[in-house]
Nucleic acid binder design. Structure first.
Length: 641
DNA sequence: TTGACGACTTAGTAGCATAATA
DNA sequence: TATTATGCTACTAAGTCGTCAA
């Protein structure tokens, strides 16, 4: 049905957003609207939003809610229509370049650095690097030898000759005043007045407005990280041999700008020039530089809400769904390979079994100058233990290794006898430090996987198993008669099952125990209230039996109050369970990277749970495509022919 | 075949903003 | 209204995987 209404700016808050780059927007209650502009001269001239703000309230629009079917068709059609030739990512790209880190502000004169108990005035750059260390004095990093050694080495490199000859021992450096100064500064920043905070906010918003967006093929899109990383000390995770090294300041001269030839080229800061301006439309980045600690290229890229990223995300889940069609065959295949005559094939088959069953990462080889972490293909003999029998289970493999970000993976897994025997074979005549799969690496694995299915790589299994688990867990845990709060608990539990599978951990939040105790107190108090209310209901019932209308009304009131209290108690109990189960598990990573969002969208629609309860604003922006595409019947494990 | 490199995704956390509570 | 708890965002490190050259 066509609903014709005249909208002013107030009723269409994000109308601004649509001008110049899209004709679709979301209205109330998550409904997507298609907009037909009625003789809008402004739009036909295709002017940019900024210059039109004053006239917007006069724009007449006809809004037509898009049905689910046409929404799906629309998203797909739009992506089809704008398909580019192979490898081409855009035809037009314009942006304003990155924002550089603010310059270093020297310390006030009264803040002193002492060496060997003697006051010492440091040169500008030496002081700046010292300040990086001083700020971290409270941090665990500064207790680590590697951190201190690397910092001191790099710090000495920026010193003047005079400073270098004098400062020869980090232990004799006293950064305490500097540290106190920065702590104090942070405190002052926190206690800024409302007005000061507002001013700062406006300043940031202005910066975002100017540098935070780009125009790509006629659409205005948000940039993910438009600020250049400021200088500081490298914070590698785990036992990273380079921790504490100086991450130097990045200047325009380090930056490569990528944009269209026919776009307005961004201006470098005054007195500077870009390292290079290139026009490579086969990549998606807007700017890049090489950082000095690990010599890696860093990029300025689009926000996950952008069309380009969204499309890629969609493709990722489509590949995972394709795997679902083939996975039975692939499993049969690798199980047969456990018996192969060739060692390399047996190793490949056992490794693939782990990747599939345990959602292990591929495990590329790493350099010596990185933290010692492993994935499946790079497992070493010391990372597994074999037990013919453990805790009443046969053929148990105990995995214990550090994975990505030096997060420990510990798992006791009963496996098939043949897998177990193969592992014994692989470990024969090997010692600690030797590769478990010495005839295998990720290239070999991925080459094999690509032969089995186009586009198949090791990481597709993680996506596939994560999404499949979510779908299966939601089927199992959701009860249509539950309250919204109970349904959300089920959703979180399904999400948690995935996070456990993928080993997504987090540090126990600060004050977790305290907050749990408080919650328990609240629950006890609520129980007392309920007991009290129950007594009151009983009394009221007795009085109502022989009393007048007034007593009956009072009885009803008491009953309702009791119901309300019981509801509140259930909610608190749910919160308690949820929070405790979540103590060391991070749900965000799987939600953002592994779970086909259409499963969640469909679940919300099917069980009438508002999407806002599952995805926050940023997540909704990232998964816009899925919210548009999926109806209540969408299934990850079913592809319509 | 191997290693280096480039491009992109996946990852946990610090610190800020906002909501809840006292 | 001040304080505390919680949620969100920005940040940037650390993976994966494809390509290219030696």
């Amino acid at each position: 049905m066509l609903c014709k209404r005249r909208f002013c700016l107030k009723t269409v808050p994000n109308l601004l957003e649509i001008l110049g780059h899209t004709e679709y927007f979301s209205g109330n209650r998550g409904v997507r609207y298609k907009i037909n502009y009625k003789k809008s001269k402004l739009i036909r001239q295709n002017q940019v939003a900024g210059s039109l703000t004053k006239s917007i309230s006069r724009v007449k629009v006809v809004l037509k809610p898009i049905t689910r079917v046409s929404r799906l068709a629309f998203v797909k059609k739009r992506w089809e229509e704008e398909k580019k030739e192979d490898g081409v990512k855009w035809k037009f790209l314009e942006h304003k370049g990155p924002v550089f880190a603010p310059p270093y502000e020297p310390l006030p004169k009264n803040i002193k650095f002492y060496y060997n108990d003697e006051e010492m005035k440091l040169s500008h750059e030496t002081e700046e690097v010292a300040s990086f260390y001083a700020k971290m004095l409270d941090h665990d990093y500064t207790t680590k030898d590697a951190f201190n050694k690397n910092f001191f080495h790099d710090w000495r490199e920026v010193m003047t000759d005079k400073e270098r000859s004098k400062i020869t021992d980090l232990k004799k450096c006293n950064f305490k005043q500097m540290h106190a100064y920065f702590t104090d500064l942070a405190e002052k920043n926190r206690n800024k007045t409302k007005e000061e905070k507002q001013m700062l906010k406006e300043k940031n918003e202005a910066l975002l407005k100017e540098y935070g967006f780009c125009v790509i093929d006629g659409h205005k899109e948000k940039i993910g990280n438009f600020k250049i990383e400021p200088p500081g000390l490298f914070r590698g995770r785990g036992e990273h041999p380079k921790m504490g090294k100086l991450k130097r300041r990045v200047e325009a001269e380090d930056i490569i700008i990528n944009c269209s030839k026919d776009s307005k080229i961004p201006e470098p800061p005054p007195g500077h020039r870009w390292k290079e301006v290139r026009h490579d439309n086969k990549v998606t980045w807007l700017a890049s530089w090489t950082e000095n600690v690990q010599n890696q290229v860093k990029y300025i890229m689009l926000n996950p809400s952008s069309k380009l990223k969204g499309e890629k995300d969609w493709q990722k889940y489509e590949t995972a769904r394709k795997l679902h069609q083939k996975v039975d065959k692939i499993r049969e295949n690798y199980q047969a390979d456990w018996k192969s005559k060739e060692m390399r094939i047996r190793q490949r088959a056992v490794a693939l079994y782990f990747i599939d069953k345990l959602a292990l990462r591929a495990g590329n080889e790493k350099d010596e100058d990185q933290a010692d972490t492993v994935g499946c293909c790079s497992l070493r003999c010391e990372h597994i233990e074999l037990h013919e029998e453990k805790d009443g289970k046969d053929y148990v493999v105990v995995f214990d290794f550090l994975g990505k970000d030096s997060i420990r993976y510990y798992n006791e897994v009963p496996v098939e006898k043949r897998v177990f025997k193969n592992l014994q074979l692989f470990m024969e005549n090997k010692k600690q430090g030797d590769d478990l799969f010495d005839r295998l690496n990720t290239q070999i694995m991925n080459k094999h996987l690509n032969d089995l299915m186009e586009g198949l790589t090791a990481k597709v299994f993680r996506t596939y198993n994560a999404s499949w688990t979510l779908q299966q867990q939601l089927d199992e845990l959701t009860n249509a008669d539950d309250t919204v709060a109970e349904k959300i608990l089920s959703y979180n539990r399904a999400n948690r099952a995935v996070a456990v599978l993928c080993n997504h951990q987090r540090a126990v939040p600060k004050g977790h125990q305290k907050s749990m105790e408080k919650l328990k107190e609240k629950i006890d108090a609520k129980r007392d209230q309920i007991k009290d209310a129950e007594r009151q209901v009983k009394d009221a019932q007795r009085e109502a039996k022989h009393g007048s209308v007034k007593e009956k009304v009072a009885y009803d009131k008491k009953k309702k109050q009791l119901e309300r209290l019981k509801d509140q108690l259930t909610k608190l109990e749910i919160q308690e369970t949820d929070r405790d189960e979540n103590k060391t598990i991070a749900l965000g990573t799987s939600k953002l990277n592994y779970l086909d969002p259409r499963i969640s969208v469909a679940w919300c629609k099917k069980y009438e749970v508002p999407i806002e309860k599952i995805y926050n604003k940023t997540q909704r922006a990232k998964f816009r495509w899925a919210i548009d595409m999926a109806g209540p019947d969408y299934r990850f494990d079913r592809i319509k022919k």
